[in-house]
Design a protein around this nucleic acid. Structure first.
Lengths: 239, 239
DNA sequence: GAAAAGCGTGAAGCCTCGTAACGCTGATAA
DNA sequence: TTATCAGCGTTACGAGGCTTCACGCTTTTC
């Protein structure tokens, strides 16, 4: 007869989290799984490069494919569509931010709370400067129709970044160095401090401070970080 | 024979600033010029509505045309291409912001400097909330390739918004109420204050503060505005 | 009233997204 | 060892958006 349902549909997509070759959790990845993961990384890196050069709005599957020496349809083996790729990039960007903040933990003496706070602020800014495309993916204008799911990976990753700062402030509180007359709630104070630093960083990242020379910008940022520290509740140790 | 250069090319585009029916400066607009201006407004309004619903990245000429009951090619009589339309929208957005800030001038007693500053901050936030699409156009992730010309209309309009705040602080200075230990330069202090308020507004506009209920957000914003006032150099009158 | 300018349309070319059907390769299993 | 199969990548294709072109209609201008 005809068409006896051969191949039963190519198992397209890979959507949620299950890759076609998804091995049981904990087992060593097979050669194929490693190759697949490597290709996924290649695709995401190529996409980030293109976003850096042309903006996330102009990201084209065709260009990614050309970069990798593939044809556009090949990418659909790894991402169901452009949105799924963007979602993965956003999630990765949150993780990248969290990693960058975590990395500062080891560079500053644990008992120097002011230094830890300022270093965290500086890491936030450095990360934005070094990964403008990731910063734009997270904090740039979001697509209204898209909207990440409330309990999705982006929400979790975002929470992780925030928790980093809260933990720092908790340490500060136990040291008896916390206290602010305007915002008694620690979490709310953290939000305002974050907003203070974020305002500077986002203006700078989007070129609205390009009139200032770099040295002045650096100086102003340090000042802004100090103001944020005060907002967060760190009482100035050395004024 | 054939093709005797009839119509000498349809005078397409309208790019820089000269509309096809551009009348001499100062003369009353003709009926046609008014009709054209009205159509331009219709196009821009339709575009803003679509941006609000679907994001600036998904703005389609086809959709704008459909909204106005036109065919897509008709829009090319008014804008050379999608980028030119977006440029116009960005410029308009800056003007909209400036107008919103200017409008607060009359609502607060001129001698109440704290109230004027807080009202300006509030106007900034209200404008962002009421015109999220305009806010996104100015402060959302810009297209890397695009980059407004340094002396272009967007730069001028942006400067106008900034001057508004500087003027306010100049009034404050003459009143002898200005002085800040951290940032002696008034313009730099303005930038930090702006960044402080902007950080809150942009986080809120992009949904990063959606976990907070509106009343709490309002309260926090007022606090942030007070902190910005202190950064700008306003010495607290009523602590 | 005639010429010109401006406006809008349908047709057409190019590019991108996304789907479908097919061949190849390496892994797996009898 | 050989047959099968999952996964990968390709070509072919349809749908839809951007933009240009050639043309007709309406309004303004002389």
């Amino acid at each position: 007869m005809a068409a006896e349902a051969t191949r039963k549909a190519p198992a397209r997509t890979a959507a949620g989290g299950g890759t076609p070759t998804a091995g049981a959790t904990g087992t060593a990845p097979t050669r194929r799984e490693r190759a697949r993961a490597a290709t996924v990384e290649e695709i995401k890196n190529a996409a980030l490069d293109l976003i850096r050069d042309h903006g996330s709005a102009n990201l084209r599957f065709t260009d990614i494919a050309r970069t990798l020496g593939l044809t556009p349809p090949a990418l659909y083996r790894y991402f169901a569509d452009r949105d799924e790729l963007l979602t993965a990039l956003v999630t990765d960007s949150y993780d990248s931010l969290s990693d960058a903040l975590d990395a500062t933990r080891g560079t500053v003496p644990a008992d120097d709370l002011d230094a830890r706070f300022l270093a965290t602020c500086g890491a936030y800014r450095s990360w934005a400067q070094d990964s403008p495309e990731r910063f734009a993916l997270i904090f740039g204008s979001p697509v209204p129709g898209y909207a990440a799911p409330p309990d999705g990976p982006t929400a979790v990753a975002g929470r992780r970044a925030m928790d980093h700062v809260l933990e720092l402030l908790a340490d500060t509180a136990t040291a008896g160095r916390l206290g602010h007359p305007l915002v008694p709630d620690t979490e709310q104070a953290t939000i305002l401090a974050w907003a203070t630093v974020h305002g500077f960083v986002t203006l700078e990242a989007h070129g609205h401070l390009h009139a200032l020379d770099p040295a002045t910008r650096d100086h102003l940022f340090t000042t802004q970080a100090r103001l944020a520290a005060r907002t967060a509740g760190l009482t100035p140790a050395s004024p």
